[in-house]
């Protein structure tokens, strides 16, 4: 464990807490893409199957349980509890356009052709594009609530910090995992446009609006 990975995990945890707070406090999931949340639940479910087979540390297990539980709780809030506030008309990204290519890629490019490893690879690839429905929805509505932009910033920073962690582990532990690194870079690049808007607008107290 290093400070970059720890701060990445904290940023990830923060993002999830911000999202849950936003939905719970405002009792609304307006502006939130339910499809991205479904994809995240799929990411955690397929990645953390080793929850029962390999124990790394209490921290690792606790975080995995939290990520899985919170992703399903968010889906419950969006599609059941506050479904009247779910903006279905703007959450129109076709998930199958993400899941199918990623599934094929996981079978073609992986470290080990075993079920657990292919599911892990599928999860890594899927996570890199899972935010697209949410970013697509923000571009479609042309704006995002400030709290939602904080959620996206924290979520984007988590994998950006993981990239620094991978550089650190390469130089100090001789460890690297190209699948995770390439997917992580793609994932972070997808946030760049949003990061620019977040820094130039939200941090100056303005509303996050996209040029329609």
């Amino acid at each position: 464990m290093n400070v970059f990975r720890l701060s990445g995990d904290v940023s990830h945890l923060l993002a999830i807490l911000i999202l849950l707070m936003k939905i719970w406090k405002t009792r609304s999931c307006a502006g939130i893409s339910g499809k991205s949340q479904i994809l995240f639940a799929l990411v955690y479910t397929t990645r953390y199957l080793d929850l029962f087979t390999s124990f790394i540390s209490p921290y690792n297990t606790a975080m995995k349980v939290f990520f899985i539980a919170s992703s399903y709780a968010t889906i419950y809030l969006i599609y059941l509890k506050f479904k009247a506030t779910y903006d279905r008309n703007h959450d129109t990204f076709r998930m199958e356009f993400l899941v199918l290519p990623v599934l094929v890629l996981a079978f073609v490019v992986n470290h080990d052709f075993t079920p657990l490893e292919i599911l892990w690879t599928f999860s890594i690839y899927l996570e890199s594009v899972a935010i697209l429905p949410q970013l697509f929805m923000v571009s479609k509505t042309g704006q995002a609530e400030t709290i939602t932009s904080h959620y996206l910033f924290a979520l984007g920073m988590y994998r950006a910090l993981y990239i620094v962690n991978w550089v650190y582990r390469y130089y100090f532990e001789g460890f690297y995992d190209l699948i995770a690194i390439i997917a992580g870079v793609v994932q972070t690049v997808l946030y760049c446009d949003f990061f620019y808007l977040y820094v130039t607008k939200v941090l100056k107290g303005k509303q996050l609006t996209l040029p329609a």
């Binding site: 990975r5 995990d9 990830h12 080793d50 390999s54 790394i56 690792n60 975080m63 995995k64 990520f67 470290h111 080990d112 490893e117 892990w120 993981y162 962690n165 460890f175 690297y176 995992d177 995770a180």
Partner: peptide, 10 residues
Amino acid sequence: WSKRNMHDEL
């Protein structure tokens, strides 16, 4: 598991 596949990260 080879070192690379430790998957010790979240």
